[in-house]
């Protein structure tokens, strides 16, 4: 089944805010991510199975705050104790995830259709985040992720890169439009390129 973009008719390309006279390559870039597999994996409290022995797309889960295990296609974000969010370009992973994380011990939920995803890239990416979220972003490193709140909107932030900073924001699909407006408003003072 193909996905209908969460930000269809909302995300428009172009240059906005204080972009004039600035080198286009230095501008903040804002884009929508689509067609990703997003799966929540939760191990039940009473389960004694070792989650470390399960491998998915060559990755092993880690029960560690901020931690993201990753390869080129797939990232597994720590959501909470024994609770992970798997994000992958490989949409067919779902079948093997459901097989490997057996239903007696794990709850596997496909959230691919229920998230809006915004990517911000550029020097000021963290400044944009600081404007709506009181988390101390100075400590957020490459391949860290957090759950937090931006202007009252619950979201997951995945730090993809730090040269320049690149973050991926996940919000509930229904909050996508509000989050998009919050983020683009906050980006106006830096000038941004919407791609």
């Amino acid at each position: 089944m193909s996905l209908i973009s969460a930000l269809a008719n909302i995300h428009t390309t172009g240059q906005f805010g204080d972009h004039e006279g600035k080198n286009e390559n230095d501008l903040l870039k804002i884009s929508e991510n689509q067609n990703l597999l997003i799966v929540q994996i939760v191990q039940y409290k009473n389960s004694i199975l070792s989650f470390e022995s399960i491998e998915i797309d060559g990755l092993k889960l880690k029960n560690e705050p901020l931690n993201v295990v990753f390869n080129n296609d797939t990232r597994v974000l720590w959501n909470g104790p024994k609770n992970w969010l798997l994000v992958s370009k490989k949409k067919d992973l779902l079948t093997s995830i459901s097989k490997k994380f057996i239903e007696t011990d794990f709850a596997v939920t496909d959230l691919s259709h229920s998230k809006a995803i915004i990517e911000i890239e550029g020097q000021e990416a963290k400044e944009v985040l600081k404007k709506g979220c009181p988390f101390n972003f100075n400590i957020l490193e490459k391949n860290n992720s957090i759950n937090s709140i931006y202007n009252g909107i619950a979201l997951t932030i995945d730090m993809l890169d730090d040269n320049p900073d690149k973050v991926r924001l996940f919000a509930l699909r229904s909050f996508g439009e509000s989050l998009y407006h919050s983020i683009t408003d906050a980006s106006l003072e830096f000038g941004f390129k919407s791609i």
Binding site: P65, L66, G80, P134, F135, N136, N147, S148, I149
Partner: peptide, 17 residues
């Protein structure tokens, strides 16, 4: 703003709680 050290996640702002 209160800052609360979540024993699972670390120091976090009150509005997350």
């Amino acid at each position: 703003m209160l800052y609360i050290k979540c024993p699972h996640c670390g120091m976090r702002p009150q509005i997350e709680f």
